[in-house]
Design a protein around this nucleic acid. Structure first.
Lengths: 218, 218
DNA sequence: GCAATAGTGTCTTTGAGACAATATCGA
DNA sequence: TCGATATTGTCTCAAAGACACTATTGC
């Protein structure tokens, strides 16, 4: 007995901060099904060129958008009979993070829509659901890893990092305690000084893509 | 341009404790590729009967082994060009937990081999790697959820739960502090008394499949 | 009584959180 | 000098961990 193979795609939830709130990047579909609807960037695996599913996600972003995210990780795989009108389909969902400035510029240049993750409205397929899963992953990882550092440019100050944490976690944090905790884990490398409106600040960069703290950071 | 669809399967890492150590259940493959090698239970999605990928995993366990696990959750999806000699293939990996007694009985009845997760030896495909990922997931979830409760029968004592935690986390825990902490989160419901060699113990059951603690349990 | 296991009390240390105080810039 | 932002000090309270102690069974 043989069964038809399900449709298999990778879809990417691209997140960035815009004005202190998390936004997701959407593309307007140009073909059926769901033509005209807003959807996550995604595509089929190209078995002749992609070495693995993460490479497929990177290729989709690169070729469709000319984009290389600061951080990319797998979130979940959603597979069922009803999520795509064409039939049984499977999506390997990736989370991509990038800084605000470059993401806005990319969106303007490529016709992407950046929408607040709390107000996506109706989207193609189950993509609103996939976005909720990815945002949940980001929020839960925020408090014990350096993941949200990838929502900033490579070099940033503690104050900027603080703002990102408050935006992602959606609650107020104490500045003084935050600074002490984040510096106690020696995962930030001081690189230069940053001058602004008041006293100059020490600027840092992440020493690795993803570090795990041994306890909660915020 | 069109690409051949990758092979798509679900594979299940069935874990149980055996003599205080984590073991995984393996089946001997009866057909090519890798015929005769030990491998994880798994199979194709049946698009006409499985409503989603988790249902496919449950059906595989039910029809191949007559088994319904106490706990089942998705771990990761591994997809690349080299893991299967037949070509580009994708495995949606599930973690299944069950109690020692029933798992041993099942293994004996169905010809499964239960091997220590630290010493699996060579296995078919990338299954040794998939097992490491699933065990890692269990270990990391152990300290902040009730997940390891599913390695015990439905009704258990604190002392039994304590032993499971020590086995999974692989380090010593203080009995007194463990008891206080686990009871402080009111996720255990007292159901009866258990008599044994010494003073009788209160027995409990989990009130839900998976509860998250608001801080580390051990 | 003793062996065995269950369960409690209590002290010390560490981290979390609140919040006041000080430092260093530009204007 | 002041306004703005960065950074440090210090106090309080809660949780983590160590470990001694008491409780309840069977024999």
């Amino acid at each position: 007995m043989s069964y038809p193979k399900p449709i298999l795609t990778v879809d990417i939830v691209m997140l960035a901060l815009l004005g202190g709130r998390l936004h997701v990047a959407l593309m307007q579909r140009d073909r059926a099904p769901e033509a005209g609807e807003w959807a996550l960037p995604g595509g089929y695996i190209h078995t002749n060129e992609d070495v693995d599913s993460e490479a497929a996600a990177r290729r989709v972003l690169k070729t469709k958008l000319g984009f290389e995210p600061r951080h990319l990780e797998q979130v979940i795989t959603e597979g069922n009979a009803t999520r795509d009108p064409r039939g049984w389909s499977v999506s390997i969902v990736y989370l991509a993070l990038h800084e605000e400035a470059e993401m806005s510029e990319l969106a303007a240049r490529k016709g992407l829509k950046l929408v607040d993750v709390e107000q996506t409205g109706e989207l193609a397929f189950d993509h609103a659901h996939l976005i909720r899963l990815a945002v949940g992953r980001l929020r839960s990882k925020a408090s014990y890893t350096t993941i949200v550092g990838h929502l900033l440019p490579p070099v940033f100050t503690i104050a900027e990092l603080f703002d990102v944490y408050e935006a992602v976690l959606g609650r107020e944090i104490d500045r003084a305690n935050f600074r002490r905790k984040v510096l106690a884990f020696s995962t930030l490398e001081p690189v230069s000084m940053r001058r602004g409106a008041g006293r100059p600040a020490q600027a840092f960069r992440l020493t690795r893509d993803l570090d795990y703290f041994d306890r909660q950071i915020a």
